[in-house]
């Protein structure tokens, strides 16, 4: 599926400390262009920290991170032109309507008026937001707000999209809707790094799964490969085996 030799994301030796606590301890990870990689890990494993560094919000203490070949520390503006981020916090303005929220992003990205209109209309259609177009952000259900959030991320047409726990707190139908959107996105050629607590989500969407534990990557493989390597029926079993508190991680490390 990769359409380019330059990976969407290339992380090498990435290290981040908060005071005495080492959150990331030399993480290496490559996401080929046009694919989805799911980043799994227990709470506090550093998944959001990886996304924050890649999206230029947080400097790393050591190591490098590149997005489509651009170093996030040295060329943050170039990276910002290429990425879209849907974080755990809602980026929807609660006082603006769905249409106004989308238009705000189109304007800030300087889409010509006609193109901005066409683009927001297409996204409203694609995300099924038509009936809610005049509703304010605060009047939307959790699922609708998350859809709008993602739609806003997609307005400028980012080539690499970060989804930080995109379906946390959503009901099963809303989750499935969002999965459909992510599949459509990838079919269009976008590269995705997804963090999630839901292993079925990784199983459904990801070409590759990376497991973070104790600040290191303890596994990186296809979902099927991980299940086979651990003789497990589901990614749940793999996850529990890899992130057990007492295990010796190095023995479990799976080279890609």
């Amino acid at each position: 599926m990769p359409t380019s030799a330059t990976p969407a994301i290339e992380i090498a030796g990435l290290t981040k400390r908060y005071g005495a606590q080492t959150v990331l301890d030399g993480v290496d990870l490559t996401v080929p262009a046009g694919t989805v990689t799911a980043l799994l890990g227990p709470n506090g494993a550093g998944k959001t920290t990886v996304v924050s560094i890649l999206s230029t919000l947080l400097p790393a203490d050591a190591g490098t991170a590149r997005v489509l070949g651009h170093d996030v520390a040295r060329a943050p503006q170039a990276v910002r032109h290429l990425i879209g981020v849907t974080g755990q916090l809602s980026a929807v303005d609660p006082l603006l309507t769905v249409a106004e929220n989308l238009r705000l992003v189109a304007d800030l990205f300087h889409l010509p008026r006609s193109e901005g209109r066409a683009r927001t209309a297409e996204l409203v259609e694609r995300f099924g937001l038509g009936d809610a177009a005049r509703k304010q952000g605060q009047q939307l259900s959790g699922g609708m707000r998350r859809k709008l959030d993602l739609a806003m991320t997609l307005v400028p047409g980012p080539q690499v999209v970060f989804l930080d726990e995109p379906t946390t707190g959503l009901d099963p139908r809303a989750r499935r809707d969002l999965w459909e959107q992510v599949r459509g996105l990838v079919a269009g050629g976008t590269s995705v790094l997804l963090t999630t607590q839901y292993l079925d989500e990784a199983d459904q969407l990801a070409d590759a799964v990376a497991v973070l534990h104790g600040g290191r990557l303890v596994a990186h493989d296809t979902p099927a490969g991980l299940k086979a390597a651990h003789d497990a029926g589901s990614l749940d079993d793999v996850f529990l085996a890899l992130t057990a508190p007492t295990q010796d991680r190095t023995q479990e490390e799976v080279a890609r």
Binding site: T3, A33, H81, Q159, G188
Partner: peptide, 8 residues
């Protein structure tokens, strides 16, 4: 980069 319907 991978083709995408939207303009950058």
């Amino acid at each position: 980069a991978a083709p995408h319907p939207a303009a950058p």
